[in-house]
């Protein structure tokens, strides 16, 4: 082994050590990110793929890797869901299958779930990133690969649309008051 190989090995060891630290930091938030967007089995598969991609793109990991990793997870999930839909189309010719949902509903608040389901997918995702991942517009911009300004504007509009949707649902379904408000 020559000196170049030794240097490469040392660099590799340092990269591995740092990546282990990164994974310890991002693993749990990524699990939750995926649990909010797909079923458990798919979430587990996509998590593994996400970490693999993060390792392969280790040199691009920013100092705050989580928004970057969310972006990777989001795209891995989209790819997995496309594959799943393709398989379902094929399987559907042979037997009825239980179609997994692309994103779980908000729990315990039927009106909110209905309102979110009625939003454009982009708005719903912005709201999830804001409320559930608790990201700032700048971090949302990293995940969605848009500018921070665009993220801020779109998030503002998404909130408005969600409020409008909730108002409409409340107006037409006022009999079910128990589903209102911030239930815990």
């Amino acid at each position: 082994m020559d000196r170049a190989d030794t240097r490469a090995d040392n660099g590799d060891a340092a990269a591995r050590a740092r990546f282990e630290e990164v994974v310890r930091e991002i693993h749990e938030p990524l699990r939750r990110f995926l649990a909010r967007r797909t079923d458990a089995a798919a979430a587990d598969d996509v998590l593994a793929e996400t970490l693999l991609v993060c390792w392969r793109r280790y040199d691009e990991l920013p100092p705050e890797p989580l928004p970057f990793a969310y972006g990777v997870a989001r795209l891995c999930l989209a790819n997995a869901q496309r594959g799943s839909r393709r398989q379902r189309r094929l399987a559907g010719r042979i037997a009825a299958v239980d179609p997994p949902r692309d994103a779980p509903d908000p729990v315990g608040d039927d009106r909110l779930a209905e309102a979110m389901a009625g939003l454009p997918a982009r708005d719903a995702e912005l709201l999830r990133l804001w409320a559930w991942e608790q990201l700032t517009p700048g971090e949302i911009a990293t995940v969605l690969e848009i500018t921070a300004n665009a993220a801020s504007i779109r998030l503002h509009r998404a909130k408005e649309r969600l409020r409008d949707a909730l108002r409409k649902i409340d107006a037409t379904g006022g009999h079910d008051e128990t589903t209102e408000g911030g239930r815990r």
Partner: peptide, 13 residues
């Protein structure tokens, strides 16, 4: 208000 309501409905909670 919106944030509180959304967080309360977090499916990963």
């Amino acid at each position: 208000e919106l944030l509180t309501r959304l967080r309360a409905a977090d499916p990963a909670s």
